[in-house]
Design a protein around this nucleic acid. Structure first.
Length: 921
RNA sequence: GCGGAUGUGGUGAAAUGGUAGACACGCCACUUUGAGGGGGUGGUGGGCGUAAGCCUGUGCGAGUUCGACUCUCGCCAUCCGCACCA
């Protein structure tokens, strides 16, 4: 009987479907385990072989955990709102919901063929109103909350209002856009509009004017993580800075907790570092410099991490966008400053980034006074100071900061060295080491002593205070697009007002076109009646990360109509034990999700402060492109080895008509009309193609479709091969060449069970050699699966099957555990063989075989002989020797006699299965 | 510039500090078959040798150790992330 994977896989996929084998139900009697994949955006292109890599890994782990007795939650869904569907809608007029639906169907079909153990009854789609009701709900909760810095948690805005009406801002320490100060009396006499404006300053979901990333081509604003090097991540269009009023989330309030709680997560160091960098904590001091524009005096606040260098301040610098620019520009400098600001504005973000080496700036005409030395220093304006960080103004210490140094050199400003023996003639001395000089009371201290000493002094004299700054900015939360969650906000007399929660979900309206209106309003402005109670509704929609921020919670209780997740479900499933996905979400989704979870945690809706306990980043699978070489101005193609003799252009060729780099010439002629009468210059009768590793994409013709692999080799082969390719975390090119190896392995496994005359399994007692093979495999599989080293596990299976094949083993007592072990990797063939052995129930309800060390004894081991605490030599002796026998054996060796003769005692340390140390004392 | 990771055959890769290259691809030889992109057997880091065998070998250079792909230090190269963050 042949291994008929097509029949087998179809059979078991429908079996699982009919029996709902993988349906997860809360069960307090069993420990839970939650395995989650980052849900995909259903794009029109469908899945290629790179996508399922992480899904296969998580599926193996889920099935393994299930065999180990865990109640496993392993759901899947779709991140279905997003730009591509909308761009497609703009071009074709087709409703994004229609294309999305179609793409989801295609994804599902492809996923099903690979044999995943998802509980599809828990599927979620972010674009489903029943789902986005809870996205809108969370937004309203954020709108209705502020962040209490003293309690370090979110609290209802009503408490803030209460406090304002009793004591004004006196008793409040809250995260805010701008420090405010007013009395209860002032508050109580404010109009509703004024109160609304004040509260916006504190809300966690708030509206505020900021400089945003505006993408004219996409007609929308973008978050920082959606922009790379001045271009949009989606589409690659130029992005510019623009001041706009936008909805934002006060993520920055959570910076400290997002940073600190990273500590306990089982994530990779590199990913944690990426988040640490993004959050960007720096410890320093905020200081006040008096600044004078003519006779006008101002308190200018600056932030520095190097308070020890105050004695070396020779000028101050303002960011061009800083509000100080206007106040500190003197009448004489007005035109020069205006000209500079104009110039800065004209340059795009892209140009600014490209010209970081170029030093520009202008003198404001004002002076500031160094609070420690009393020296008067000029105030300059330069774009190397960023408005969005710190206070948008800095004290410049050219001797010890390379940027200040470059600026001082360019504009001939003085440079005062503050560290003994440092040379600042060529460049600044940025290192935080050495002995202070020219620094008054700090002289003689090391830099490490001087920093806290300077801050202490500053605090004591009321010049400033300790401060921790974070680089993390609030997330811009509005998009001027159609295909996203509508905001449950309307404008009553112009005041942003939350919709009553009974009105949720606020569904997306129908529009005639998906483009902005002629007057530049977002597409929702096209809706016929986009109002509530006669007042206009918010016209922008939420960004992509809104829907993906809490989806892992919804899977716990996906059909609940009265809560995002019920308390019971949340307390049972708690949080994700294992999360698998790409690194590209390090500073986007993984920050927002953690923020969202912490917010819900503060309000008592969830019981865990972190959403994802363990995180694995699977590597990307790149494409392996093939090329043909066309001789210029002809329709003649020259083989790879001979191309250097001709003037050729390299053309991507579909990898599906190339086998082992050899071109299928007939298929090539049929591939595109242009090539129908192509001619070829061959080598050894074959056309050899060139190759390169590139991103897998349609335009490179290097996309390998998992369906195609399932057709020719089967899903089990695909699963094993993707794991066999190399370590999970590593990026690697897809190369179909090696797939025959794992396919052969499965056929060989099959032949272990089936001979020419059908099932050949016998009931005999297993031999020691057979037991050894089996238990070696169990031990290896257990540790390797726990460590997500799936490539070595697959190798171990191959070794075991080869050994059993050599032993001609057909014993049930060996083969039965073998297929249980294999079932997480190759579930279809395992189920089939399991059934052939007479089992009625699915193999996923079996239990993972126990490892027994006794069967896996090595016959010899290495003994290291120590003398005076140092190991002197090693000797190999049989494993089963007694301790005394080993000792006497070692004593009998000539070398040992030398040491033992000195009156030393031989001590033997036995490490089971490992090296045995014989220590001579 | 800062941070992280990686460096082993023709290829993907494996090695609690203990015989480097398991396993697989590819390649070579043989075998089975009417035939095969099927099954099987053997070989395959490099150098010398008919062979047994010998020498050499994990980016480079030191160090620790009886023993280093593995640990420490210093270089070099590649990849990823951040980047005028005061």
């Amino acid at each position: 009987m042949e291994y008929d994977f097509r029949k087998i896989e179809k059979k078991w996929q429908s079996y699982w479907y009919e029996h709902q084998t993988f349906k997860a139900v809360e069960d307090p009697s069993r420990p839970k385990y939650y395995v989650l994949d980052m849900f995909p955006y259903p794009s029109g292109a469908g899945l290629h072989v790179g996508h399922p890599l992480g899904y296969i890994a998580s599926d193996i782990y889920s099935r393994y955990k299930r065999l180990c007795g865990f109640n496993v939650l392993h759901p899947m869904g779709y991140d279905a709102f997003g730009l591509p569907a909308e761009q497609y809608a703009i071009q074709t007029g087709q409703h994004p919901a229609v294309t999305t639906e179609k793409n989801i169907a295609r994804y599902r079909e492809q996923l099903d063929r690979i044999g995943f153990s998802y509980d599809w009854s828990r599927e979620v789609r972010t674009c489903d109103p029943a789902y986005y009701k809870w996205t809108q709900w969370a937004f309203l909760k954020m709108f209705d909350s502020y962040y209490d810095n003293r309690l370090q948690k979110a609290r209802p805005v009503s408490e803030l209002v209460d406090s304002f009406s009793r004591t004004g801002t006196r008793d409040i320490d809250a995260a805010c856009t701008k420090e405010l100060s007013f009395t209860a009396g002032q508050w109580n006499s404010m109009t509703d509009r004024e109160k609304s404006d004040i509260l916006m300053n504190y809300r966690i979901a708030y509206q505020g004017e900021t400089s945003v990333n505006w993408c004219p081509k996409l007609g929308t604003v973008l978050a920082n993580d959606e922009v790379k090097e001045g271009y949009s991540v989606r589409g690659g269009y130029p992005v510019e800075q623009k001041k706009m009023t936008q909805w934002q989330l006060r993520v920055s309030a959570y910076a400290a907790r997002l940073l600190d709680d990273l500590e306990d997560l089982a994530w990779t160091d590199s990913l944690k570092d990426m988040q640490r960098n993004w959050i960007g904590r720096s410890q320093g001091a905020e200081m006040v410099f008096k600044a004078y524009n003519g006779d006008l005096e101002y308190d200018m606040h600056i932030f520095t991490t190097r308070a020890d260098t105050v004695f070396g301040v020779t000028f101050m610098v303002l960011a061009p966008e800083s509000e100080w620019v206007e106040k500190l520009t003197s009448p004489e400098q007005e035109s020069a400053v205006a000209e500079y600001l104009n110039e800065v504005k004209k340059r795009t973000e892209r140009e600014r980034l490209a010209e970081t080496k170029k030093v520009t700036g202008v003198f404001s005409g004002s002076y500031a006074v160094n609070p420690l030395t009393g020296n008067r220093v000029p105030v300059w304006i330069s774009e190397y100071v960023l408005a969005g960080y710190g206070t948008g103004a800095i004290m410049a210490v050219p001797a010890h900061d390379s940027r200040d140094y470059a600026f001082a050199r360019r504009f001939n400003l003085p440079i005062i060295p503050l560290i003994e023996g440092c040379d600042v003639s060529e460049s600044s001395f940025d290192a935080k080491e050495g002995i202070m000089c020219n620094s008054g009371f700090l002289d003689g201290m090391t830099v490490k002593e001087a920093i806290p000493a300077a801050i202490d002094y500053v605090e004591k004299h009321g010049i400033g205070h300790r401060k921790i700054n974070y680089r993390l900015r609030d997330a811009i939360f509005s998009r001027q697009r159609y295909w996203g969650e509508p905001f449950p906000i309307y404008y009553k007399e112009g005041i942003p007002t939350p919709l009553p929660s009974s009105e949720l979900p606020l569904q997306l309206p129908e529009v005639d076109k998906y483009l902005p209106t002629e007057s530049g309003e977002p597409p929702l402005a096209r809706a016929a009646d986009w109002t509530y109670g006669g007042w206009p509704l918010e016209k922008s929609t939420m960004p992509g990360f809104a829907g993906s921020s809490a989806y892992y919670l919804r899977y716990m209780d996906p059909h609940n109509d009265s809560a995002l997740v019920s308390r019971g479900a949340d307390e049972y499933w708690r949080n994700v034990d294992l999360y698998i996905g790409g690194t590209e979400h390090a500073t986007g989704h993984l920050i927002y999700s953690r923020f969202w979870n912490k917010f819900l945690y503060d309000l008592g809706y969830v019981c865990e402060k972190e959403p994802f306990k363990k995180l694995i980043n699977q590597g990307m699978i790149q494409g392996r492109s093939n090329f043909v070489y066309r001789i210029i101005n002809t329709n003649k193609f020259v083989s790879y080895g001979l191309k250097d003799g001709y003037d050729t252009t390299e053309i991507h060729v579909d990898v599906n008509i190339v086998h082992n780099d050899r071109l299928d010439i007939d298929a090539f002629r049929k591939w595109m009309p242009d090539f129908a009468d192509a001619e070829f210059i061959l080598e050894n009768g074959e056309y050899i193609c060139g190759y390169a590793t590139e991103k897998m994409s349609k335009s490179m013709f290097n996309v390998v479709n998992p369906d195609m692999i399932c057709d020719t080799y089967g899903a089990d082969t695909l699963r094993l091969y993707e794991m066999f390719l190399g370590p999970l975390e590593q990026s690697k090119p897809w190369d179909t060449k090696g797939i025959d190896g794992v396919h052969r392995f499965l056929k060989r496994l099959w032949r272990l069970f089936y001979g020419k005359d059908g099932l050949a399994v016998t009931d005999g007692k297993p031999l020691p050699a057979e037991l050894k093979t089996l238990h070696k495999l169990i031990g290896k599989a257990r540790t390797d699966i726990e460590n997500f080293s799936f490539n070595t596990t697959v190798s171990a299976f191959m070794i075991a099957v080869n050994e059993l094949y050599d032993l001609k083993c057909s014993k049930r007592a060996i083969l039965e555990p073998l297929i249980i072990l294999l079932s997480p990797f190759a579930p279809h063939i395992s189920e089939e063989l399991w059934e052939a052995l007479g089992h009625k129930e699915s193999i996923s309800f079996a239990s993972f075989p126990e490892y027994d060390e006794r069967y896996v004894v090595e016959d010899s081991c290495t003994y290291a002989v120590s003398f005076n605490g140092k190991t002197r030599f090693t000797v190999d002796l049989p494993k089963d020797m007694s301790r005394e026998a080993v000792e006497s054996e070692v004593r009998s060796l000539d070398q040992t006699m030398k040491y033992v003769g000195d009156g030393n005692i031989v001590k033997i340390i036995v490490v089971p299965g490992k090296i045995v140390n014989i220590v001579v004392k």
